[in-house]
Design a protein around this nucleic acid. Structure first.
Lengths: 268, 268
DNA sequence: CGAAAAAGGGAAAATATATTCCAAAATCCA
DNA sequence: TGGATTTTGGAATATATTTTCCCTTTTTCG
């Protein structure tokens, strides 16, 4: 087992050992540094062919650097591609045993930070641009969000109205949801925030908008759900869950990005 | 051989077929979209374990979408990783610190992450404990929050009601704010969320509660403001500001901490 | 130059991985 | 309800991949 645990240190190690490597091992070293993707994604045979060495040379190379075999070294290259922030895994599962004396609430911060990290990695600039473009074109922006998504919709209402956008929060108060929604037209847009177990209200609103030809921008945690499938633009965001409750940290950050993006666009 | 050649079209294809997939195939679809990295880097057995399906289900999934087998479909996922990582390296290489046109949204993530970090450092365990204790003792929790603070109050309403706490959101709709607030008693508590330029409503609510002897828990960005000074417990949180707009990422994290803290306490 | 040591090639063996297949369970439909 | 059809789980099989090992080639150094 090698002491090297991440790509950066492996790279450094290879660089420092390089001069004293044999001819073929140098060849592998150069290939590995130049083609880390291949090293992560291809089989030993394919890599060997591309690097023009024998498969066994690759294994010798791995063993030279203290790994049990090639596969073990390949993990490092895979880790590099996976993003390897170790925050990532935290989104799904938190240590149930919890505290180790230090930082009783670290789980929460880690979770939120992890969600942000994930959002940063996943957020597609093009999709976001399309969303902003749609909002910009809209005469009136209708907002939908219920249960956990309601605070997000409320935040949009606050922030967008500060941009002098016409916004209507479809709160359904007084049982007037359908009436409120009836006014949506093709020149408008519906910004729907919805998380799994999507509420009936949001699904029917989105469906109606879709039928009418009103552009729908979805902010959701499930890009395969009923809301996303009817949306013209789908922004995915996953907040960390702690003891049955999800924060809204990442979603709020996404909301801010949308708002500021729209603000910028409007000024130009 | 499938007609799908890149990740984006596979994703679109999966989304469009999703509704008519069987239960396990849906499970795979969700996992695949949510964890494309695992799909590219792990073995069938590992993926199956993570997605909680049988290996054979993964193969059925691949075949459903026209691939010869799982491995062929996995190529699509590998392709995605191979393509994007050039971009990834570029970011790392050219912008080691600040901005350089790349990482257009890094400001937002950085801002939110920094806010969380600050919250983590500033948050006093004793103060938090006192806040939770107060909320726990309260018969009914009254919630106040206007403008930017409203989404936070709304989140509290959602989350606390899931803990079977009696909560009243003082929304002031219909001009009945004073009437709603009149019911607060010393056995209750007022959870007031307010940020600078504090709204008139929240100030008068907090003042009234203070006079009546109702415990007030303040969540605010100004520990010296009119809300904090009248509160029995004051939790300070500062969200990052980007181009005139503040996110609520850190505040939402704090809200989650309070909620989960209260949930734990209640169980014991 | 020639013996000893190191490096390299490549096939064979070992291991891991993907795929098939069939029986059991669930779902559908008449 | 009850037979037909689809879906699912999981062991058995086939395939692919990694690793070992031995022999050949190359390099090193007295």
């Amino acid at each position: 087992m090698s002491s090297v645990n991440d790509f950066e240190s492996l790279k450094a190690e290879i660089a420092s050992q390089f001069p004293q490597l044999s001819r073929r091992l140098k060849q592998v070293a150069e290939f590995a540094i130049a083609n880390p993707n291949d090293m992560a994604l291809e089989t030993i045979a394919t890599i060997a062919r591309k690097a023009e060495v024998q498969p066994s040379t690759l294994i010798r190379f791995a063993k030279y650097f203290g790994f049990d075999g090639f596969s073990e070294m390949q993990r490092i290259f895979k880790g590099r591609l996976a993003g390897q922030s170790d925050y990532k895994d935290r989104i799904k599962a938190f240590s149930p045993e919890g505290e180790s004396g230090e930082g009783l609430f670290d789980d929460f911060f880690h979770g939120s930070t992890a969600s942000l990290e994930e959002l940063r990695n996943q957020l597609d600039e093009n999709v976001l641009g399309k969303a902003i473009e749609t909002l910009k074109k809209a005469d009136t922006i209708y907002l939908a969000g219920y249960r956990r998504a309601f605070p997000v919709a409320a935040y949009f209402q606050y922030a967008l109205s500060h941009l002098d956008k016409k916004v209507v929060l479809l709160h359904g108060m007084g049982g007037m949801l359908a009436e409120q929604a009836r006014l949506m037209g093709t020149q408008d847009a519906l910004l729907a925030v919805s998380f799994r177990e999507h509420s009936e209200e949001v699904i029917s609103l989105v469906t109606e908008a879709d039928h009418k030809g009103v552009p729908v921008i979805a902010v959701t945690d499930s890009s395969l759900g009923p809301v996303a499938s009817r949306a013209s633009v789908c922004l995915e965001v996953k907040d960390a869950k702690v003891q049955g409750f999800r924060s809204l940290s990442a979603t709020m950050c996404l909301a801010l990005i949308l708002v500021v993006g729209l603000g910028k666009e409007s000024l130009e």
